[in-house]
């Protein structure tokens, strides 16, 4: 499945929240309203920088009930492949961008007795979409946001509209000062935990929860894409009969799309599994959260959105 046809949105407003954080507000180019997004949903933005085309997924931070605008928060990362720096440095109010309809791979579980939200850094974004929804449902929840000391006030401001009378805490003391095991150990039966943040935080939550007896079905991770850069390689697309060069700051999926081949994709962050493509020759360097350890070892599938070749050449069945 490929996300539905993109549509045009206009940049309505850009607000600098912190030196490396900007909130972008979009509105429909031709007036009217956007579709109601799912809580925890994300949109795919197509960013064109000269000949380079990037498609990046961003969690919506505006309330799901808000249809006149879609908001995202983007962090400018030092080793940006171009997406975040393009948004931060080149996009201005009034610009028109291509966006695909929001989808969610990170839904709130309606049968949960309690929702435990854990955000790390910019991983706060899907939580900002969850909070108004949880408030509206009258659901029981607790949120813990990890931040660097200097960004604590920024996140506190973002969470302030939902904070009254709720268990919402921003931790600025680093991971070591955050008692993850204690938090997970005291949760009542029927709690679901949702984590978004750096890969290491998501792994820590998943492994600590498992060690405390949480079933996998109650642990939910939202990957917003780790590092996908690496050594350049050549990919042979067997069915299409072409070869593409994958640059060091480019993903295999982006190289395939640049060659004009329609490839399956959805989250573009190694989480959803839509882009799993048979690997015919060569070895993959797996960077996704979707394939199991056994599947990765078997080496018969590659997730084109985040994984790369280990070596100069691979052949895929696309």
């Amino acid at each position: 499945m490929t996300a539905a046809q993109p549509f045009n949105v206009r940049v309505r407003e850009i607000v600098e929240l912190a030196p490396s954080l900007k909130r972008f507000s979009f509105e429909p180019v031709h007036g009217g309203v956007f579709p109601t997004p799912p809580a925890g949903g994300h949109v795919l933005l197509t960013l064109r920088d000269g000949a380079r085309v990037m498609k990046n997924a961003y969690s919506l931070v505006s309330p799901p009930s808000e249809r006149s605008r879609y908001d995202i928060i983007v962090r400018l990362v030092a080793q940006s492949r171009g997406g975040s720096s393009h948004l931060h440095r080149k996009v201005a109010p009034g610009d028109v961008l291509e966006m695909a309809n929001p989808v969610s791979l990170f839904p709130l579980i309606s049968t949960a007795k309690k929702h435990l939200l854990i955000g790390g850094g910019i991983g706060i974004t899907p939580m900002l979409s969850f909070l108004p929804e949880l408030k509206a449902r009258g659901a029981r929840f607790e949120l813990h946001q990890l931040a660097t000391l200097e960004e604590v006030p920024v996140f506190e401001r973002l969470l302030a509209p939902y904070a009254a009378g709720e268990e919402i805490r921003v931790h600025g003391g680093g991971r070591a000062a955050f008692d993850l095991a204690g938090l997970l150990a005291r949760q009542p039966l029927g709690t679901h935990v949702y984590v978004c943040g750096p890969h290491s935080l998501m792994e820590a939550v998943a492994s600590t929860a498992a060690a405390l007896g949480w079933p996998k079905t109650k642990v939910h991770k939202e990957s917003f894409g780790g590092d996908i850069t690496g050594l350049p390689f050549r990919a042979v697309l067997r069915k299409s009969g072409i070869e593409v060069e994958v640059g060091e700051s480019q993903s295999l999926l982006e190289a395939i799309e640049a060659a004009g081949v329609e490839a399956p994709c959805l989250c573009r962050g190694g989480a959803c599994g839509q882009c799993a493509t048979p690997l015919v020759e060569g070895e993959a360097e797996h960077r996704d959260d979707f394939l199991s350890a056994e599947e990765k070892a078997a080496g018969t599938l590659i997730m084109t959105c985040v994984s790369r070749a280990r070596g100069p050449r691979i052949v895929i069945d696309l």
């Binding site: 997970l184 005291r186 949760q187 009542p188």
Partner: peptide, 8 residues
Amino acid sequence: LARETMGL
């Protein structure tokens, strides 16, 4: 069950 924690 009302006062149990995750892991049961």
